[in-house]
């Protein structure tokens, strides 16, 4: 029997969002909002900090030019452990729903 997935639905959604490469925190927040998950700024960054501290994502500040002004933003990327956790979660759901088998057949 497969063990429970290592991340929550919300964390999975974030890992999924980061699968295609590094993006800014604001974009991640936008993707969550598209799924009906609204978080205030500190609550959202608390969520991200948990993932960061768990070693699933890595964040850094990058400069950004907005309307001629230099501002900075925090950008996030998936770590190897994050990719692994994402894979494990996908595998868990596939095993529970049989989606993989149907697709294979």
């Amino acid at each position: 029997m497969s063990t429970l997935p290592p991340v929550t639905h919300l964390q999975f959604l974030i890992l999924e969002a980061l699968r295609d490469g590094e993006i800014a925190g604001a974009e991640v927040r936008g993707i969550l909002a598209d799924h009906g998950v609204r978080r205030t700024l500190p609550a959202f960054y608390e969520l991200m900090s948990r993932l960061e501290r768990a070693g699933l994502v890595v964040g850094h500040y990058a400069p950004k030019l907005v309307k001629g002004q230099n501002v900075r933003e925090r950008r996030y990327a998936l770590t190897a452990a994050g990719s692994g956790a994402h894979e494990d979660t996908c595998r868990f759901y596939r095993s529970r729903t049989g989606v993989q088998e149907q697709e294979a057949s």
């Binding site: 925190g25 500190p42 309307k67 501002v71 925090r74």
Partner: peptide, 18 residues
């Protein structure tokens, strides 16, 4: 480090972008 700074950065960026 984890909450205030990134939130403020995003707030500032939003404000600048209008």
């Amino acid at each position: 480090r984890w909450l205030f700074d990134p939130s403020l950065a995003e707030l500032t960026s939003e404000a600048v972008a209008g």
